[in-house]
Design a protein around this nucleic acid. Sequence first.
DNA 1: GATTAGGGTTTG
Length: 711
Amino acid sequence: MPFHALVDGASPGVQVPPHLTRIPINLISTSSDLANALVKGKVVRKGPLVSVAPNDFILKAVVQEEDSQPHISTQIPAINIVVFGELARDFSQCVSPGDVVMASGFTVSKSPTASKDKLHHLNLLLSEEDANIYVSSLKIPKLTKAPRYTYTPLGDLKAGSVVNVYGVVVFFKQPFKSHGTDFCSSLKITDKSNHNIGCTIFCEKLEEHPKIFQNGDIVRMHRVKVQLFNNTITLVNTFGFSVVTFDGKPSGSVEPRTSSRTIHFDEEDRRRVEELQTWISSQNILLSSTSSVSLSAVQPKAYFDLTCQLLAKAPVDSTCSLLRVWDGTRCPNTFLKVDVDPNDVEGPTTFSREKESFIASVLVYDNHSEFAKQLKPGAFLRIYNLRAIPVTSKECSVTGSHSEEVEHIVFHLHGGTSYGRGIRVLPENSPDVQMLKRAIAFLTDDVGNCASELNDSELLEVWSTPPESLGMANICRSSFLICRLQLQRVTLSELKQSRPGQVYRVRAQLRSYEPSKLHQALKLFCSKCSSIQEIPDDEWVASIFSEACKNSEDWAPQRTLRVHLSTQLKTEGKANELLFITGTTLEETCRLATGYNNIVPLTSSKSGLVLMDLSAPFLFRGPRRFYGCKQCSEATVRELPSRGDKLLDEKIIAEALGVQLLQFVLLMKLQLQDATDTLDVFLWKHAVSLKCSTLFTQKSHWVVFLEMLRL
DNA sequence: GATTAGGGTTTG
């Protein structure tokens, strides 16, 4: 267990091993002996837990030497730490800013952010295999001494009691100012008992309110009073109230959303949250609100929730503000141009034409216009219960000869809080923001790199980077282009839901690929039995050659190299075109192959000359080697048929020898992503020749444009 | 240890 919680600096059964020696942060260097080094410091910054794969995480934090004497500079030594794997998850759950941690078993790497953050020029890397983290946490004593909470199922609530509950949000309003002293949150929750219970939360401070981002979120409340109102059970917060929320979608990690530093959260809580997540996914739960859609899917007149980034904002009048937002997708409708005073605009006043085509105009009214005053451009928002309003206006034609009706669209967020109308700033680490950032990064890559909007014909140009430049000859490009233009382009999410057997186009970003070295992608493929095998390495082939020599019938006290010529070729005066040799090593065969066109290594047996084990190449030509399929070949050494003037190639030789020739194919695994999903893709065989040219000619943020068959 | 609100049939 690489993660240890120490209470008051020590814990029963857990001790910082005595052989560890503390190293001051400013003395950490690449030449330090880190094997027994212990770093101690206060966590001054803790980044979000980033999930890189199921049960694999990365977390960054900054640790500052707490008790160091200020030396030459007044700067207190601090260093970035990067924690990997489940250790990162444990760290995320148990360590809060302000906690003192000790770490051992780390390695160091150059900090790419040193010039920016002015911290140590190295990062500490802590992997779960080697590193240990010890934390003396302020909250752990509380956590261990805290009473066990009991939670009342929503079907068992009795008026007058004070209870703790877990529930799944089916309706919510953002906190709004009440007529009293507090903000008020209104929500409705449900659980397995299928009761829908209304809850009213009054808190003076916004941060004490439940952080609900969408229906389906899970909420845990401590100390709520059960009341009857209109003969209906409701819950209201009471003294000592606390609330914490969780994403309702299982993501591998359970991250409590709270601003409280002293939250009780243990394995039992994790189990409850996961159980509810499973329940939600099995329920098609009645999430009675508007649905979350991207700009590209907005329907005129419809109500919807929008997750977006704020680019600019401006007041329109005393009750209305304009928000310019985007989400990385393009709305099919053109947005109404809302006139505002450029001096009142916060953020850019204009955008390039391409960028503008991705930006939506949102008019927010009354209380939302007030709320918008505190928003900063760059913030990630979810706007609830927006309405897409079509606006018909008359515009003069280009020639000015007549005016024509043009339909635009503008989004309205009506005043009030009915239907949960409101705006919420989403934290950077929320999965939806991560997704949004990906979509926007993908877009800006296009818009930024290509100077003009990247249309299909330009993409095709990228796509059809001459394969000749990669040494790939004779590939007919035009046929590819024609087919592709007729294919339907879909998102990865749509592709995953589509019917098998269809061919689609997708455009996505390459997230990763395997193998990392192209030559490792090269495999041998048998078109007869469809088997794929690795290309044997030289050591293995050399051992086949030496075995063949030893077992050879004419193995005398010493090895004898013999050359056998084809009688047929001799009569044609082309004896040197094909040499059969016995008694050579791999190295000698390779050397001979540089001087002769075709070399076939043989070994002699009782029945005469035979081909070597087909694990080794059966034919050498210059630097190239050809292999046969062990299963499908019936190899015998035979005379070549007469060919006239036809050039001797590997196919003719293989056929003559009864060898099923193996083809070289590339096999690669790609992980693609777009704004909607990720997808593992296997590229192989002929498809590779073109597609790889695209992959390897785009230096960064590769855009992959594939046709693929949904299998 | 009071008060607030108690979803909702949706202006611009």
